[in-house]
Amino acid sequence: MGKGSIVIVSTGMLIGGDITVRCQETIKQADVVFSLMSSAVGDSWLDELNPNHKSLQYLYGKTKHRMDTYEEMVEVMMQEVRKGKKVCGAFYGHAGVFAWAPHEAIRVAKKEGFEAKMLPGVSADMALFADLGIDPATKGVQAFEATQFLFYKHQINPVSHVILWQIGLIGEHSAKSFDIPEKGPQILVDYLSQWYPLDHSIALYECAVLPIFETRIEKIKLGDLVNVDLNLITTMVIEPLGELEPNEKILGKFGITEKMVGSRD
């Protein structure tokens, strides 16, 4: 038996359709595949790609601390690596975006002297750039985990798009519950009102992971956030407010004016 290794692959948002060639080949060629998919359809698909596939879903518990679950996921995968197996961890979306366990598995494997790497994929924000027609190059994009945004002193730049992840869990601090605290949306709206008027436009986005379902794109006013359904998969996007302000000092250092930036003259 050779020396064990682990490759964490990303399967993308749309099951079966978003995966890259090298991620799919890694799944096929692994001795054992562990996964966290967004649907049982994803599990069936992985079963077809590699019969030695096991879901990690069973490690979740209703009142279990999520870090316990994630540590167990890492340990389950590492046990096979230590046996000398070629292990693949397949995670939906981008395996390294809003996912602690995949990163930790790589850290642990490398620390123990095993080969380990992660392959990228399509995450929810990549999908929403396409579905909502947002180009991060236009005015910039800020992104925060919604609860962390409230609990810590992040600063918003209203001129850019702002993405708030996990809005459906806003204010959930125990890491044991999957329910949204009742006060969460109102506290968020109040907090955001220091940068935005209540009638400012926001979008609620839920990427369809199965092609038989529709992607949710719901445009509402900020103040109406308290009246809408929020789910675990809801991402909130705040439209830019105002125009980019030139940094005259830096422009001066280049010996140019704002008018000269990107000018055809």
């Binding site: 966290l36 998919m37 967004s38 649907s39 049982a40 359809v41 879903q57 979740y60 999520r66 870090m67 995670f91 939906y92 979306g93 809003f98 996912a99 602690w100 366990a101 985990e145 609860t147 962390q148 609990f151 810590y152 992840w165 996990q166 869990l169 601090h173 890491a175 999957f178 199965l210 038989i212 379902f213 675990l232 998969i233």
Partner: peptide
């Protein structure tokens, strides 16, 4: 019916999302 479809597909038991804890 999304609920019935999810039940049929066996998604009812799925936590389905890797939830990031606020601070680790």
């Amino acid at each position: 019916s999304k609920r019935e479809i999810e039940n049929l597909l066996g998604n009812a038991y799925f936590v389905s999302h890797i939830i990031s804890t606020t601070k680790t």
